[in-house]
Nucleic acid binder design. Structure first.
Length: 488
RNA sequence: GCGCUCCUGGCUCAAUUGGCAGAGCAACGGACUCUUAAUCCGUGGGUUCCGGGUUCAAGUCCCGGGGGGCGUACCA
């Protein structure tokens, strides 16, 4: 496919041809020595000839003088380009330069009459001609912004433009990377080992979502993209790697919304000799480290709330909280009664099983009130097939989910390590699934049979953590290249 | 998946009840040696997402399709 035809691109392609005719390479392979824009800025006025390079973001022509603003990742600086300071050829080249072009300049630094530090350009080189125009963002005297690119579809499809023009977006992605580094640093320095487990799986597990199905040609068998890393990581705990984690993509073949993406980044960590209480501390620590890396906290703005990230986070026991908020002892109700209540509340009349109903009602009564960081603890056993039951009440498991502003950020348990009990649960789950063809993950069960020490496990939605720490209202704003429908 | 809603030059947005498709920025030509939304003079640019329909007349109303946004459902 050839480059798109439009008036603006054609004009630039003509200029490009003109530049080639002048014998100038519009895409030279090397950049001459340069200093970051920021260094020029801090240097200030000097007769020394300094060099830098960047993208032309503004061009103001005044006959024989042209002012340009160029930017690099460290900042913006004005160029003062006067015909008498340039050779003939460079002046002609300047005429063929457009907003968006990437150039190299050198010259002394001086302050203009209006007080702007500028490069008095003596040498001008083209490093890369922009063939496509980019939207020009300008702020007028009234502070009104012209041409900011706000169409979400445009931003997601052309993230390069978004990063160039929207400072919030750029700093959010920088924060994201720093958050992930900080998590690694925290865990590595506490003797956790980072591992990589399979993305392509023959039997998927560790969560309840539908998988993406693929096919391995040379073995002629179907396989799945992982929906969680849980079952592999626990096999490693059984094998003696007692502090282990993985940060990676999970894939879930479910709907997309503000808080769900079909591929998303999850941290899962497992730690022997501890339980879900230990995981609460880990979560609190990780949030602290992440906030520090993002340059925010202890109080952050998110979704219109002031969120105080100072630990310890609130503990909200599932059954009592549901009782309190609903005014009814719902945990003792049977499925039929719960179903009737759900229908009455407009939560749908198609839900039949008790655990799903309890979860639904909890979401209705309790979750919206969980604005400050909270751990919902001690879930009904039916909702938590991989968690250990409490000593004093087998109907309840040692499990928590972490919420901030109603958003679920983490899920953790005291890990189930009873191989007999776990087998029952997984075999039941396997026969109830359209993809599992009745097969449970025997290798995982094998590991439990060999023996896994009592352990805590924690899964954190990294994209969602980034949302909270950078005040993003959509998970797509935290993912550089979110999945979008094919353009027609 | 369902509901509501939006789609107009490159970008951001106008267009009364259905009545000649416009503006700012960007672009092109010209003037201009300290500007910063530079300014001034001039010019071009539209299958109004696509396909049907109603009408003397459709950006606007109706039907179908595509894409987006929001909500909702699924996601232990």
């Amino acid at each position: 496919m050839a480059i798109e035809e439009n008036e603006f691109i054609n004009i630039r392609l003509e200029k490009l041809a003109g530049i080639r005719e002048m014998g100038i390479a519009p895409y030279p392979p090397h950049t001459p020595e340069r200093l970051p824009v920021e260094v020029l800025r801090t240097t200030g006025e000097t007769e020394d000839v300094l060099s830098t390079s960047g993208r032309i973001m503004a061009k103001r022509k005044h006959g024989k003088t042209v002012f340009c603003d160029i930017t690099d990742p460290t900042g913006r600086i004005q160029l003062f380009i006067n015909k008498k300071n340039l050779d003939e050829e460079s002046w002609e080249l300047l005429g063929k330069m457009d907003l968006g072009d990437i150039i190299w300049v050198s010259g002394a630094l001086f302050v203009t009459r209006t007080g702007e530090l500028s490069v008095r350009v003596g040498t001008l080189l083209l490093l890369a001609k922009a063939a496509r125009p980019m939207p020009v963002v300008k702020t007028d005297a009234d502070g009104e912004v012209h041409d900011s690119v706000s169409d979400p579809d445009f931003i997601y499809r052309h993230r390069c433009i978004d990063l160039m023009l929207n400072e919030t977006s750029k700093s959010r992605f920088i924060a994201r990377s720093r958050i992930i580094s900080a998590i690694r640093n925290y865990l590595d320095s506490d003797d956790f080992l980072e591992v990589e487990t399979p993305v392509l799986q023959q039997i998927y597990g560790g969560a309840a979502a539908d998988p993406f199905v693929s096919h391995y040609n040379s073995m002629d068998e179907d396989c799945y993209l992982r929906i969680a890393t849980e079952l592999y990581l626990k096999r490693l705990v059984a094998g003696g790697i007692h502090r282990v984690y993985e940060i990676g993509k999970d894939f879930r073949n479910e709907g997309v919304d503000r808080t769900h993406s079909p591929e998303f980044t999850q941290l899962e960590l497992y730690e022997a000799w501890t339980d879900y209480n230990g995981m609460m501390t880990r979560f609190e620590d990780i949030v602290q480290a992440a906030a520090g890396a993002a340059g925010v906290g202890p109080v952050v703005q998110f979704a219109g709330h002031e969120i105080d990230l100072t630990p310890p986070f609130k503990r909200v026991p599932f059954v009592p909280a549901l009782h309190e908020k609903s005014g009814k002892n719902l945990f003792d109700w049977d499925a039929a009664r719960l179903s009737a209540l759900a229908a009455e509340l407009g939560l749908g009349d198609d839900i039949k099983d008790r655990p799903a109903l309890l979860d639904k009602l909890f979401d209705h009564y309790v979750t919206p009130g969980l604005i400050q960081p909270s751990f919902v603890v001690d879930y009904p056993v039916e909702l938590s097939p991989l968690a250990k039951q409490k000593d004093d009440d087998p109907r309840i498991t040692e499990r928590f989910e972490a919420f901030i502003a109603g958003l679920e950020l983490a899920n953790a348990f005291s890990e189930q390590n009873d191989p007999i009990y776990q087998r029952e649960i997984l075999e039941k789950q396997a026969t109830g699934s359209e993809y599992r063809s009745g097969v449970a993950d025997e290798e995982f069960l094998y590991a439990l049979e060999v023996g896994m020490p009592p352990s805590g496990g924690l899964g954190i939605g990294v994209d969602r953590l980034v949302m909270v720490l950078t005040d993003a209202m959509s998970i797509r704003d935290t993912i550089l290249f979110p999945y979008l429908r094919r353009e027609q």
